[in-house]
Design a protein around this nucleic acid. Structure first.
Lengths: 334, 334
DNA sequence: CTGAAAGCGCTTACAG
DNA sequence: CTGAAAGCGCTTACAG
């Protein structure tokens, strides 16, 4: 069987308290004894059980990461950044895909609380904040990533989505476009709402009105159909702003199906700049989120919150950047 | 503070043993009492601490998933399937990206053992099996996914990589190709070796010799350079078989950089059929792995091993399928 | 049908 | 400098 603290204590002829002290580098132990016990631990292949120490010492060194879908490249890239930074601080991470469904959020929230994780990162949308009750009431440190709930007093790292939408609009306007459509995510996703708002405002500032009928909300699955409708209407838009790269790919597919050439017949701008953006046909012009930095930053925020719960929650805003490839070009001549 | 089993026992006027029994549906408890205690639990918002029960009841209901890189779409999709199936059986999953480095494998193996996970899925390559010692010796149920170590007596679910490589070769031969190159993963990755072997054998059976100088191993980063070399040599191959979709994308980029048209000037076949394959330019003809089925199957295998350790390890082979898109076409006329 | 008690593998005051 | 003992929140024989 696996060695326990009792086994090494017996082997070393000391009490388990002493062994515990050398494990944790606490108490005053003579140098020789400490070394001796260390040697015995490695010889016996002893590793303290984290679950036993969690039951006493409090921490489990586990974090939960809630995202809509880990198989979505954007969140997969976020997850990697979170994993790496977590690792750096000694934490492992549980993946939790919610499909943006409150029931799943609630289920995972309860589960993570039962598992006594030290903290959780919320990178998923939710309709009712109450889905997070098990966490918030359970007193589990929580940080928001790329989403936020204005009312909640929790730290968050967000990207300036409004600025991102504005950047997309400015770029398209500069290319001469005047007639736009938008492919947005579901209404409940605050980041998507902000992107549209930034896009619309920048258009307005240029004296262009965004026709509400040409702003469509949809999941990944239906984005192609929505795009087909937009591209088939008479008075077709010359540019489509999509609130993430997957939606943009739906638009690209719709265009291809209709025999339209991108960007000649219609410009398309995405958002996220995941690996997908660089492999599409044509490569996507998109608003890049600083994915690695986002993951690193939330973890740091969360770890600080875990270690110093008294500090007031921070809100960190990162800036997206226009990444120009080939899916957006000058407006076609009339 | 959070309610404990003592709190609900006191509230109900019974012993903690009785509460424990109703939680676990064990022992004989009068129906009324059982219901009463249930009500009290929900009223107090009581959820048993999984870490306390793990310390006694044995199981943590946590699984580890080792993959080279969770941000790689193939493994992200695997992770989602594993998460979902794990969830179905009551398990949560820790993500562990190893970058195919033995040190990281070993680090995670030790960590997962310390965390007392109930089982781990190895979906990563490794050079030395000994990196898994903490798991194998620690008696932690382990299953291999998409990789395997012949010597290890552990269950595994693999795809018939040899057949996949053969299918790619057969398709390209049927299209009239005779001069091939291969972009493979690192030598240590057994699945990649098998794919090349299947490819080579099928060529051989058709009387075609695969020039060893045209078989290149590389990571994702260098694949484009390798492809550039292959495509720039005199006597350029008319088709390149790539051992995963990312490598194929490297080849696509190299071709584009050289001004070559795919598939007119060179056919490219990938492997995996992740989301990437459908968004490239042109869409990738590739060998599809049954990703969802793979994830589901390993989890089932592992769960069975956890619950019935005495059963002998199974080895399940799933079959890949050619997924035809537009990156491979008839050999250009001489 | 229900409870007292030991134990899981640790940590942490508290004594000495 | 080191150890005895209580306790973390549960589960599980064992009695009754």
């Amino acid at each position: 069987m696996k060695a326990t603290i009792y086994d090494v204590a017996k082997e070393a002829g000391v009490s388990i308290a002493t062994v515990s002290h050398v494990i944790n580098g606490k108490g005053k132990i003579s140098k020789e004894r400490r070394e001796e016990i260390r040697r015995i631990m490695v010889r016996m292949g002893y590793k303290p059980s984290m679950i036993a120490s969690a039951l006493t010492g409090k921490k489990t060194y586990a974090l939960g990461l809630l995202v809509p879908d880990i198989s979505n490249p954007f969140f997969a890239e976020i997850a990697r950044a979170v994993e790496d930074e977590g690792q750096r601080h000694g934490y492992s991470v549980f993946i939790c895909s919610t499909d943006n469904k409150d029931e799943k959020v609630e289920h995972y929230a309860a589960l993570l609380q039962q598992k006594n994780v030290d903290g959780v990162i919320i990178g998923t949308g939710l309709k009712e904040l109450s889905a997070l009750d098990p966490l918030l009431h359970g007193g589990i440190p929580t940080a928001f990533l790329a989403r936020e709930i204005p009312s909640a007093q929790v730290p968050s790292v967000v990207v300036d989505d409004h600025a991102g939408g504005a950047a997309a609009a400015a770029h398209l306007i500069a290319l001469g476009h005047r007639k736009f459509a938008v492919l947005a995510e579901e209404e409940s996703v605050s980041s998507s709402r902000e992107r549209v708002r930034g896009f619309r405002q920048t258009l307005a500032a240029a004296g262009i009105v965004l026709d509400p009928a040409l702003v469509r909300s949809s999941g990944m699955k239906e984005s192609m159909n929505q795009a087909l409708e937009l591209l088939q209407g008479d008075d077709r838009p010359t540019a489509i702003f999509c609130c993430n790269d997957m939606l943009a790919i739906g638009a690209l597919r719709a265009a291809k199906q209709l025999g339209l050439r991108i960007p000649r017949d219609c410009s398309i701008v995405g958002f996220d700049d995941t690996v997908l953006a660089s492999v599409t046909d044509p490569p996507l012009t998109t608003i890049a989120q600083p994915i690695e930095q986002m993951g690193q930053t939330v973890v740091r925020l969360l770890v600080r919150l875990i270690e110093q719960p008294e500090e007031r929650p921070e809100r960190i805003v990162l800036t997206p950047a226009l990444s120009i490839r080939q899916s957006a070009a000058s407006r076609p001549p009339e």
